[in-house]
Write a protein that binds this DNA or RNA. Structure first.
Length: 861
RNA sequence: GCCGGGAUGGCGGAAUUGGUAGACGCACGGGACUCAAAAUCCCGCGCCUUAAUAAGCGUGCCGGUUCGAUUCCGGCUCCCGGCACCA
């Protein structure tokens, strides 16, 4: 045995052995219970980042732990390989996205292997290969047949200079990222998937997921946003024609307080009004500027203009003026809202700004209404006032009565609405899955017949930032109409990459299946028993995957209602952002590795400067690691310097999996030191440990305390493995080594051997290379993965005497040793006799004695 | 702005979920070993008064419930994630 810990050698050797023996190949059927452990697949951005290392180490710990617990484990890996960054890299380096992507995959795969993950690489997939994305196309066409996929117009960010559609990420402060031009909204035809048809089930089946974090389920519930309200109409007459302006409200009880209506700039009424008035036309144009992002719209200054058009209040007949409002979204509800400034904060601000009438129609007992300033209670449910026949009714009753009256007039009814919108999947981009549609002058939009799939994406295009290069590719573009045979053009939009990631977990079950999208093996492996990924995916990816799974179920492709039984949402890995404003407006970002921090004597931060020039840099907060802010940390140097086990052990030890982690590698040395100490201990006591035999019955009295400690630590580690709190598992492993070091020696061989065998197995999921190597060195067995998981010896935990904490009036005042079988009366007597207790009671009458068995006694005086 | 989450020593975090706050580790200080350094080992390490013992304060802030609150409730502050075309 080597006297010193040399991770590079043992790690490479074991990784090769695992590969040669196909140790982690998942068997499609087994008598063992199956455990499908899946980490979210990476986007091949170039190199692994810290978030990947964290994510895949958590997944690997769970996979190895369950394997040792007797499960048939599947842990696959693949590549979410389509996406925008490949096009950006292509523009920057003049390399086709395909080459860039495949090169990155090769490099990152090597990195993953060097971390020793127990992955079944035979099931690897990449979403940019036709073997994968042909099934996106196939299912899309089936959705089209069933009406789940359909076409309508949608709003996009438009860069007027580059003449191209921009992603939200490419809009910075309302301007195109490359041109700096003011971004415009533009309406274009797109394909949508009718996820809203599944709203009810997506909401209700969250209850069937006890293995999901409550916070994720809450976010999904709010996102789906089921609300009960009333859809109502304001009749009007325009150019001699009668029509109705429809709105939706969850606060029909406030309808008597309507003093205006507001419509979106894209609303037909706004369009008509703009034709009559150039000022309105200019305002409509202004509203159409800016990004389509909800966060931008919600925080921008609320502006409006009156159209001059009046509608009638559906209940009172009062004339109500229609405004155009920049805050009204065409894509939500009816594209129009009723304005109740008395009881809606946004409407209140709007009315104040434009001098519109504000009317109180709801009263809350004990509160005073004033028109001067908004009070939060104005938005509360209360009793109707100044509302004619509805006066005195509460929220529920007034909504009911108002809905009945509206219905009688044919001007509205109760309605359930959802915040969830249908999923727009068209992207005006090259590096994605082609939408399998042909546009024919005579037949219109014609689906590509199944036997002509896949529509293959040419892999040699280099985008230049001005639109989709597929539009310039004659060999892709030109085809013949599948219906009439005449020349026609292919659709050049590609699919949202969320489509690719919405079903890859099903494909892993049968990645070698080339005749079908999936086969019967999905019904063995699915649902995923444990899914692990970043909390940033709590809504979109997880919701789309749930939807897509339900569609596949309804098409008879898989027998499952939900794809992921248990979900672990890993916290983000953050790092500080350092920047400096250089000449002009451009901000320059510096990697934290190149920045030196300054501290005062108390260790408080006083400043930061760039190492290269010694001049100060500004801190821009602590955010998720990203290329654009240059605050990423490359994990490779960590692996190269310390080895995979140290990187893995440190990552697990430094923080619980679900916590946000502000990056700091100060503890890496400690993790490495621990593994070195473990190796040295194993080396120094090799003979003692190898030759000893242990049974509980033969533990000498002097060692019983240590053995009790050992089994308590095992108990805690088992508990923490089950609740997935791996930082304290690592901590238990450290405590066990501390314990063994305190009890080392030939006379304690049995204890050392038992302790070492427990320690190695506990450590094995986290630091598999060193655990496996030492396992063999001691002759515990050929493969620790086949070892039986250690069991707590309950007999070892028993003790004759226990220590009880003593409190007087809730304050800690010492402790007493008592026999572990002492009765309540005995305890009270012993404690009250205690001199220290007597001192603090100081003659006062004892009112109450609280005994928490095995823990403490509190004397209330 | 809306939705979700978080805040505990100089730092990462622990406290088996209402019962000894600060386990384990990092950093730091002191010592041993060494010609010296590294590595290693030993001791100390929340704040405050104290020579020590001992006491008081202390889990972002304000208030509440309780014999007892990091944990439960109400109200704030700051930070992080998401907001439908980053993935």
């Amino acid at each position: 045995m080597q006297p010193h810990y040399q991770p590079a050698g043992i790690e490479q050797q074991l990784q090769k052995e695992w590969e040669d023996k196909k140790t982690f190949r998942a068997i499609d059927v087994s008598s063992k219970p199956k455990y499908y452990c899946l980490s979210m697949f990476p986007y091949p951005s170039g190199k692994l980042h810290m978030g990947h290392v964290r994510n895949y180490t958590i997944g690997d710990v769970l996979s190895r732990y369950h394997r040792m617990r007797g499960f048939n484990v599947l842990q696959p890996m693949g590549w979410d390989a389509f996406g925008l960054p490949a096009e950006n890299a292509a523009m920057a380096n003049n390399v086709p996205p395909a080459k860039w992507t495949y090169d990155n995959i090769a490099y990152m795969k090597k990195q993953l292997k060097s971390l020793g993950f127990a992955i079944d690489w035979e099931r690897e997939l990449a979403t940019c290969t036709p073997q994968y994305y042909r099934w996106n196309q196939w299912l899309f066409l089936r959705m089209l047949e069933k009406g789940i996929a359909y076409k309508k117009t949608g709003t996009v960010n438009w860069d007027p200079v580059d003449q191209t559609v921009l992603a939200n990420e490419q809009v910075i402060d309302g301007r195109g990222w490359r041109t700096g031009a003011l971004v415009e909204k533009r309406e274009i035809p797109m394909y949508y998937l009718a996820i809203t048809k599944y709203s009810e089930e997506l909401l209700s089946s969250l209850d069937s997921l006890p293995g999901w974090p409550e916070r994720v389920k809450t976010m999904q519930v709010n996102w789906i946003g089921k609300s009960f309200g009333v859809r109502l109409a304001f009749p009007y007459e325009l150019n001699g024609k009668a029509d109705k302006l429809w709105v939706f409200t969850t606060r029909a009880d406030t309808v008597m307080g309507v003093t205006f209506c507001a419509v979106a700039a894209e609303h037909p009424l706004a369009t008509q009004a703009a034709k009559r008035d150039p000022k309105l036309a200019a305002f409509v144009e202004e509203c159409k500027r800016g990004s389509v992002m909800e966060a931008d719209i919600a925080t921008m200054e609320k502006k409006g203009m009156p159209t001059g058009l009046f509608v009638s209040h559906p209940l009172t007949g009062e004339k109500i003026e229609v405004w155009i409002g920049n805050y009204v979204l065409m894509s939500y509800g009816e594209g129009a809202v009723m304005g109740v400034p008395g009881h809606d904060e946004r409407d209140f601000a709007f009315a104040k700004k434009y001098g519109l009438r504000i009317a109180q129609v709801i009263d809350v007992e004990g509160e005073e209404y004033s028109l001067d300033a908004w009070q939060p209670w104005y938005a509360d449910h209360g009793i109707c006032v100044h509302s004619g026949q509805y006066d005195g009714l509460d929220f529920k009753k007034s909504v009911e009565a108002i809905a009945v009256d509206l219905k009688a007039k044919g001007l509205g009814d109760k309605q359930v609405t959802w915040r969830l919108r249908d999923w727009g999947v068209s992207r005006q981009r090259y590096w994605g899955c082609p939408i399998p549609i042909v546009h024919c002058a005579s037949c219109g939009d014609v689906p590509v017949p199944e036997d002509q799939l896949p529509v293959v994406l040419p892999e040699d295009c280099v985008p230049d930032g001005s639109g989709n290069p597929l539009n310039k590719r004659a060999d892709f573009l030109n085809t013949s109409c599948p219906k009439c045979g005449k020349p026609a053009e292919r659709e050049t939009d590609t699919m949202d990459t969320f489509v690719d990631s919405s079903w890859y977990f099903l494909r892993y079950a049968c990645a070698d299946q080339n005749e079908k999208m999936v086969d019967e093996r999905v019904n063995y492996w699915l649902p995923v028993d444990q899914y692990i990924g970043g909390i940033e995916h709590a809504i979109l990816h997880l919701l789309y995957s749930r939807f897509w799974t339900k569609v596949m179920r309804d098409f008879g492709l898989a027998k499952l209602d939900e794809p992921f039984t248990r979900l672990l949402t890993q916290g983000m890995v953050l790092n500080e952002i350092f920047s400096r404003k250089s000449d002009g407006a451009r901000v320059q970002y510096f990697n934290p590795a190149d920045v030196e921090l300054e501290f005062d004597e108390q260790g408080k931060r006083t400043g930061a400067k760039l190492k290269s020039d010694g001049k100060p840099v500004e801190s821009g907060g602590i955010r998720t690691m990203s290329k654009s802010k240059n605050n990423g940390v490359d994990p490779q140097s960590l692996i190269d310097q310390y080895g995979a086990d140290t990187a893995r052990f440190f990552m697990m030890f430094t923080s619980p999996p679900e916590d946000t982690l502000a990056w700091n590698d100060d503890g890496v040395e400690g993790a490495y030191r621990y593994l070195r100490r473990l190796w040295k201990f194993a080396h120094d006591h090799h003979a003692t440990i190898s030759s000893a035999t242990a049974t509980a019955a033969t533990t000498p009295a002097a060692q019983q305390g240590a053995r009790r400690e050992l089994h308590l630590l095992l108990q805690q580690a088992n508990f923490d493995y089950e609740r997935k709190q791996f930082n304290t598992v690592a901590s238990a492993a450290m405590k066990i080594l501390n314990l063994l070091e305190d009890h080392a020696g030939p006379a304690q061989g049995a204890l050392m051997r038992e302790g070492m065998s427990i320690l190695l197995r506990l450590l094995s999921p986290i630091a598999p290379h060193i655990a496996q190597t030492l396992w063999r060195e001691f002759g515990f067995g050929a493969d620790i993965l086949e070892g039986v998981w250690p069991k707590v010896d309950e007999a070892a935990l028993l003790q004759d005497e226990i220590e009880l904490v003593v409190q007087v009036n809730g304050k800690h005042r010492g402790s007493v040793r008592i026999p572990s079988d002492a009765s309540r009366d005995d305890i009270e007597r012993l404690v009250l006799e205690n001199p220290n207790v007597q001192k603090y009671i100081a003659g006062q009458a004892v009112k109450k004695v609280i005994v928490v068995p095995g823990r403490l006694v509190n004397i209330v005086a």
